[in-house]
Simulated scan of single mutants.
Amino acid sequence: MSTSDATAEIKEVGKAVEITDKARLTSLGDPETEARRQFGILAARKVDADLIAQAQANETSQGGGTPLSFTTATGKTNFTWADAVVPAIGAFGDEWEPDDFSGLYLNSAQLGEAMLDPQFIDASKLGNGPSAAVTGSIGRMGGVPVYVTNRITAGKFLLMKTGVLGLLYKRRPLVESDRDILARSNVITTTMHYAVKRLNDKGVCVGTLATT
């Protein structure tokens, strides 16, 4: 019997904005409410970007390992079912079951290539049954939801199982405000503390399209 341990870095991110009384009185709507809304969007995007980066990271210095990976054959520069997805599926050995995968993640540079592939089924054609499109996905390929995000580098893609990535909040987004009576303004700040971790090195395959 053996045990192992791994570490994850706790990150702190934050943002601040100052809203003057003049801006509040002369603007349409409520600038403070809008600032809080935008903070929420920025926080979600930052966490999303860190999760995608961690899925591809070399975690050997943290007690982990590296994800599955491969590069398409020379001359296979386009994202297709035969040249890209099939080899990615092969990397998982006998553990291929579409329902076990959270998705296939692409850069927008490969969007057109994916949509032209005969194996791609557009979300609008999936109906409302068990195989319907997952929220946020553009369709399915090989039974797996397809997502487009430019947080993945052009020429790369991820095929990932469900539950591969972990997110732990040490403190969820905290919004605070303070009044500066001399400047006649309100300062609004938001901070959050969290850690991301790849929980299963063999649960994600990083594919790279050949350059030539």
Score class of each variant (00 low, 15 high):
residue 211 T to P: 00
residue 173 P to E: 11
residue 180 D to A: 10
residue 84 A to L: 07
residue 45 R to N: 11
residue 94 D to T: 15
residue 129 G to A: 14
residue 107 N to D: 15
residue 43 A to P: 01
residue 53 A to P: 05
residue 185 S to D: 06
residue 147 Y to T: 01
residue 94 D to F: 06
residue 158 L to W: 03
residue 168 L to C: 02
residue 199 L to E: 13
residue 59 E to V: 02
residue 125 K to N: 14
residue 29 G to I: 06
residue 51 L to D: 08
residue 197 K to D: 07
residue 176 E to Q: 14
residue 24 R to V: 07
residue 210 A to G: 09
residue 119 Q to C: 03
residue 182 L to E: 13
residue 132 A to I: 03
residue 171 R to Y: 09
residue 29 G to K: 00
residue 199 L to D: 09
residue 192 M to V: 02
residue 81 W to Y: 15
residue 45 R to S: 06
residue 10 I to K: 09
residue 195 A to I: 07
residue 185 S to F: 01
residue 140 R to I: 13
residue 45 R to C: 02
residue 78 N to I: 06
residue 165 L to Y: 04
residue 116 L to V: 03
residue 207 G to K: 02
residue 194 Y to G: 05
residue 37 R to T: 09
residue 71 T to R: 10
residue 55 A to V: 02
residue 15 K to H: 12
residue 185 S to M: 08
residue 63 G to N: 08
residue 182 L to Y: 12
residue 117 D to V: 04
residue 167 L to R: 11
residue 144 V to G: 04
residue 144 V to Q: 02
residue 177 S to H: 11
residue 20 T to D: 07
residue 151 R to E: 14
residue 204 V to E: 00
residue 140 R to S: 12
residue 73 A to E: 13
residue 38 Q to N: 12
residue 12 E to R: 10
residue 184 R to S: 13
residue 172 R to K: 15
residue 62 Q to P: 00
residue 99 D to T: 13
residue 37 R to W: 05
residue 207 G to P: 01
residue 69 S to H: 05
residue 121 I to Y: 08
residue 119 Q to P: 00
residue 187 V to E: 11
residue 165 L to E: 08
residue 118 P to S: 14
residue 158 L to G: 01
residue 126 L to S: 09
residue 88 A to V: 04
residue 83 D to S: 15
residue 99 D to Y: 10
residue 108 S to N: 13
residue 10 I to H: 08
residue 162 T to L: 11
residue 8 A to Q: 11
residue 198 R to G: 04
residue 107 N to H: 15
residue 56 Q to G: 06
residue 154 A to K: 12
residue 154 A to W: 02
residue 97 E to M: 09
residue 93 G to H: 07
residue 21 D to W: 07
residue 96 W to D: 03
residue 21 D to P: 00
residue 33 T to W: 01
residue 132 A to F: 05
residue 114 A to D: 00
residue 169 Y to W: 15
residue 121 I to A: 11
residue 168 L to S: 10
residue 54 Q to K: 14
residue 174 L to F: 02
